[in-house]
Design a protein around this nucleic acid. Structure first.
Lengths: 227, 227
DNA sequence: TAGATTGTTAATCGATTAACAATC
DNA sequence: TAGATTGTTAATCGATTAACAATC
């Protein structure tokens, strides 16, 4: 099937772009802005019924036209002259992000960072429940962080059904990261947030986002040093 | 001055692109890849003298042509048929990132996250020294985290010269973030890494990067839910 | 030389945005 | 109606990459 030169194609659109629209794929840049819109909508939910693309843009550090295009990718429509329904847009973005229901998160590694993350109340507030905290250190296993008991990482393998979770946060030392990631993948996990300062290799079906403190500081340093 | 139609311009280049080359600006996408190259180079420093664009690309999750173009933005040249000098490229990237010398970092907020960051050895290994840790809680002030004594945030204002730092890490509660950011800006800081789950407004001359756990999880959820 | 790898071009891709008709 | 704001087009921008001549 040829996708270009069809009735709906225009010279200003690339063939690949037309294809992505056909299969209803949302641009990556849009996906990363959705949580920013959502945050404003949650703040606004009690005070306003309607929000404009201008306000959403200010909250996300984007352009109003950009916002309108983003929302049109969701097939979400506002009212001309009025704006967008706060409640409806909030629900629509939650649905699109796959967080209409609460998500279960496991934290791997109960070091300083793992414990800090387990204690962080902001997760629950945004719909993420930390349901497990794993470590390999026998001195830590059994002790509690908040209401969560640290468990032996070896339990992971048998835990598939009883303690299932959708998302894993990797907070282990760099040397252990790949090994633990492999076990998570075996366990069927498809989303990993990696705080370890190494890239982990995973099958294509698994998505990983890495948060690397040193690299963030290095990028900051670049911009700080030339002003 | 017109920038297009000049002797050096070609139809395949946009006028804005030509301008950025004239003033020697490095593309943002390149800047964020430099730390990834640097990490590989540090790992390689003891074992290899030369590295290829192919290897650098694999480490950074980029394309080899992309790497070669990135390095040409640094005016850094390799040797055809051979590759790039590991030691020279490492030094060149450090210089470009403004981290030829060690950088001093202050952490604002000695809660779970602030203390976890202060304890994180990876920072020092990458050339960042945590020189101060501030909080407002009188029960925390004076106690130590590792070798650093928690100080009263009010000292920040008098501290300009004696305890100066180039980079600040914001690890305070959301409600305090803007206020503390304002004080940092007054203090003359130009680089802020913000872990608080709110955008902070700063003058244009200050750069901020935000790390927001919930938003990262929401983006992950999107990709995890459609596979 | 033959093989390897750079440096650069040209094309395409993906994202942004000004502008404005549509319309509440 | 007049004012406000959406939805969409068209242009441009910024980034990526295949391909290949240059050259070690």
């Amino acid at each position: 099937m040829r996708l270009d030169s069809g009735a709906g194609s225009r010279d200003s659109k690339h063939a690949a772009q037309v294809y992505r629209e056909l299969v209803n794929e949302i641009p990556k840049a849009t996906v990363v802005r959705l949580p920013r819109y959502l945050r404003l909508l949650e703040d606004l939910a009690l005070s306003k019924d309607v929000v404009s693309s201008e306000e959403l843009a200010a909250a996300a550090g984007a352009n109003a036209a950009n916002v309108r295009r983003d929302l049109s990718h969701l097939d979400f429509h506002g009212v001309r002259g009025i704006g967008y329904s706060v409640a409806e847009l909030k629900a629509r973005i939650r649905q699109e992000l796959g967080i209409a229901e609460r998500q279960r998160v496991a934290i791997l590694g109960a070091g300083n960072l793992g414990r800090a993350l387990a204690n962080y109340g902001g997760l629950s507030r945004r719909g993420f429940d930390v349901v497990a905290l794993y470590d390999t250190d026998v001195r830590k296993i059994g002790s509690k962080v908040g209401s969560i008991t640290i468990q032996d990482l070896d339990l992971l393998d048998g835990d598939c059904t009883s303690k299932s979770f959708e998302i894993a946060i990797l907070a282990v030392p760099a040397v252990a990261a790949q090994q633990v990631a492999d076990r998570l993948v075996e366990h069927g996990i498809r989303s990993i947030l990696n705080f370890a300062p190494v890239r982990v290799n995973v099958p294509e079906k698994v998505s990983v986002r890495q948060v690397d403190l040193s690299m963030e500081l290095q990028v900051l340093s670049y911009y700080g040093s030339r002003l």
